[in-house]
């Protein structure tokens, strides 16, 4: 089943072309990486997926519904590059808030929050305020919030940013585990070395144009992602 369907998607900010006629599909259970240098249009694509931006032309469907509608967003988990929330909220309150606005019942949310905190090794931070957390700890809270509810698609915008080596390893393990449970992963990144072992499909965006898209092994043909990327972008 097609989870993401982009057709001739274009978007401009004034005269700047952020996305130019982008078309591709992501199937259920895939781990898809959208790669590109800074300013390539990756974040704009994510914003359209989340309904935070309306495209100027073209269409983007999630789960066969128009991206942005509440029914589609209910099935998405989103981790921004810099997870930020109200600094006076405690970790547990933050996760409770995320569970509530995701539509998870109060009776169900308690156990889910406990489990998510255990998986991300932040149980001892439960009663700490977000303002007292390090960047890496904050990112872990953001990742924990993704595990709440039955999400079918996880959108991770530069997920490795701000994490220490142990944090990166933990996140990679977690993403592998999620992949096994048939959750579709959409990773937006420019740290190619971290993304390469995880993704099975990728696309490269540059100046709003989708240069390549497809299955990783078919595209790379034995090359490293880093070499292939610089070849394509240059």
């Amino acid at each position: 089943m097609s989870i993401v369907q982009a057709q001739n998607l274009s978007h401009q900010y004034g005269s700047y072309q952020a996305l130019d006629n982008v078309s591709f599909e992501i199937q259920e259970g895939q781990c898809f990486a959208l790669l590109g240098p800074n300013g390539a249009g990756k974040t704009t694509f994510v914003k359209i997926m989340l309904g935070l931006q309306n495209p100027k032309s073209g269409s983007l469907n999630l789960f066969d519904q128009k991206a942005g509608i509440a029914e589609a967003r209910a099935q998405i988990g989103y981790l921004p590059e810099k997870f930020s929330f109200y600094p006076y909220y405690k970790v547990k309150d933050t996760l409770e808030f995320h569970a509530a606005v995701s539509g998870i019942s109060k009776s169900q949310s308690g156990s889910e929050i406990e489990l998510a905190m255990q998986k991300l090794k932040i149980t001892e931070l439960a009663n700490k305020k977000l303002s007292n957390l390090s960047k890496g700890q904050l990112q872990r809270v953001g990742i924990a919030s993704l595990l709440l509810g039955n999400k079918r698609l996880l959108i991770l915008d530069e997920p490795f940013s701000g994490l220490d080596p142990i944090g990166i390893k933990d996140l990679k393990d977690l993403l592998r585990e999620l992949k096994k449970s048939n959750i579709t992963l959409f990773i937006n990144s420019h740290i190619l070395s971290e993304v390469e072992p995880l993704c099975d499909h990728f696309g490269i965006l540059n100046r709003g144009q989708l240069l390549v898209v497809g299955e990783k092994n078919q595209l790379l043909k034995g090359k490293s992602l880093e070499d292939y990327f610089s070849e394509i972008v240059q």
Binding site: Y78, K82, S84, H98, V101
Partner: peptide
Amino acid sequence: SSNVIGQLLAFPIN
């Protein structure tokens, strides 16, 4: 201004 709006509106919030 605190960039929380993107996260909030990404939820199924009308």
